[in-house]
Every structure is written in C-alpha cells, then in structure tokens.
Design a protein around this nucleic acid. Structure first.
Lengths: 155, 155
DNA sequence: TAAGATAACGCACAGAAAGTGCACATAAGT
DNA sequence: ACTTATGTGCACTTTCTGTGCGTTATCTTA
C-alpha cells in the first residue's frame, strides 16, 4: 500500500524540492532512470501525498516585503474558545507565513513578513494585541537572511 | 527596465506561489489573459528574479521528519571570524531550513527539522554547542503546525 | 533450485503544454 | 495627427508528459 521510498524516490524528491522545473528526462538522466519511469514515480509520490504541491518561490525584496520577524505570542487565560479563535485568526492572516504551537512558556511562534517596520508595528499593535486571548507578544526582527529555502533533509 | 508589476502580474504570482502546476491556459482563464501572454509574463518575472524558482513541497511526516524546532543561538565573543564560520556551518547543515540573524539579545534564529527528539538533541549538543563561537542555545519545539506554507502576502 | 507470479523497466507513440513569430490594438510621447 | 512603445491574441512548432506494451528483473513458493 504505502510502499516505502527507495533510492530513486529519494533522489527524485531531493532534486524536485530544489528545482521543480526539471523535466522527467532531466530527472531521469540524473538518477539513472527513463523519463517514463520518473513520470510514474512522480505520479505515485503525488498521489501518496509525499509531494504535496508545487509552488513558485518568490523574492520578497522584489515585492517590497523587506521585513521578516519571528513573533512569539503568549496567551492569557487558556480557555479553549479563545485559543481556537486565535488560531483561526492567525491562520487567516496573509502576513503570517508560518504558525506553530510551542512547548514551554511561549504558546505560539509566528513567522511574519511585511513591507516595513511600520507595518510590523501595526500588525502587532492593531491585529495581534487587541485579541482578547493574547497576553504578551515578543517579536524579533530578522536582520539578515542566511537561508530560507525550507528544503527538507532527505536520506 | 525593472518595470513594476501590474494587476495581472500580481494575480499570476499569487496563483503560482500557491500552485505552480497550473498551466498557462488555466492561469489565463483565471486572470483574463491568453496563455501566450501568461507565458511571456512568466518569462519576464522569472528573468527579473521575482520568481526565483519552482519547488516541490514535501510532507515532512511522510518522510519521517516529525520534529520541527526553533533554535535561538547566542554567540560569545563577537569576533568576525567566528561569526563567519558559524554562518557557513549553519547554512551547510541540511537540518536547517531557515537561518536569520536577529536584532536583540539572541544572535541567530534557526528553524530545524529532524526525525525525532533524539536527533534534535544530538543536533544541538553535537553540532551546535561544540562550535567555539556558540555561547548559548535555546530551543523551542513546535508541537502543532498551524500553517507552514510560506506564501508571501501580495497586493 | 526451478517455475510461476509480481513488480519495475525502457521504448514508442499520442495527447497536451510551452513558447515564438506575426499582425493588430492600445496607449504615450512629440 | 503621427510615430513609437508596449501589450495582446492567434497560429504554429517544439518540447514535455503520460500511457500501452513487450521485456527484464525480483520475489515467492513448491
């Protein structure tokens, strides 16, 4: 059923998450397989959900998005309703690229991308803090991005 | 030269970063343009660097990568050599998906993905802490991922 | 080990998508 | 109003994808 991945699959995945523009022929040349076989393996990987989707990776700077920040949020009363509503709100916010619940004293970690510091300030003060569930917000601004590729370690 | 983006471009980018499998025809239908025009606009956006690449987005769980953590690193002596070497090391580490320098007391923020807690412990204790530049490491484990799509807010 | 079954493979072909030349339209500048 | 730039759709060529099919390899069981 959910057959585990062999070496070919791993190699194909590694290449594809780095560059999904590669043709099946190019992938095949790299891993030692024919284009048709690569096609079949890709179909299988997509159907099994190993490959979730294909995305275009855009350059934030060229889109005027100059500020990335990590925002830690601590909720006050840990009532279920409030937490649920907070999560729904956060997930729906376009500025939020990533959102996780954490272990430890901080409840949520958000990765936020906005046009400038003013927008970050507005985001925190006008959108986050007014929510009744939020007790405390601590943000850290990313000065320099060293790596942002979000490639998973395979093999 | 670097012509700014019009409404068509924005719409195309928005669709593509969410689903790069859409054909030019489908994109055109969505934004009200012919396939050939979408093709030309995409070429331009790729050449200008607005679109950096296309990537396959994989499911970490199905690859046995169950633990995501945010790791804050504080360096000791702020010597340039050490900082440079630390950065090079971090960028080369496959477990590190994202790496930023921060404002404030913590110098670096890393997003790390590994197979399990044991691997996280090993990563921190055997790879990060032994580096001579590192003074302190504080990690926070992501329990639940609410959002992880890394889509930029456009328009 | 031999025989049959199952899975994986490459090749060839058909359908689909991408990208370019070209003629027309629309907007901008002189 | 005329000229130039840029943008557009259509038609066509090239490239890519995906499937049918016969063959090879691997696994199972007697």
């Amino acid at each position: 059923m959910n057959s585990s991945l062999d070496g070919f699959d791993i190699k194909i995945l590694r290449l594809l998450q780095d560059n999904a523009s590669l043709t099946n022929q190019e992938l095949g040349d790299n891993v030692g397989l024919s284009a048709s076989q690569v096609s079949r393996r890709r179909q299988r990987l997509e159907q099994e959900g190993v490959i979730r989707r294909y995305k275009a990776s855009l350059d934030p700077d060229r889109l005027g998005l100059t500020v990335t920040a990590y925002v830690g949020v601590t909720l006050g009363a840990h009532s279920r309703q409030n937490a649920k509503r907070f999560r729904d709100m956060v997930v729906a916010m376009p500025e939020v690229q990533e959102a996780h619940t954490l272990t430890g004293d901080v409840d949520y970690m958000l990765k936020v991308v906005v046009t400038d510091l003013k927008a970050l300030s507005r985001f925190i003060n006008d959108e986050l803090l007014p929510h009744e569930a939020v007790q405390n917000v601590r943000s850290s601004i990313a000065m320099e991005t060293l790596k942002d590729d979000n490639l998973l370690p395979l093999g």
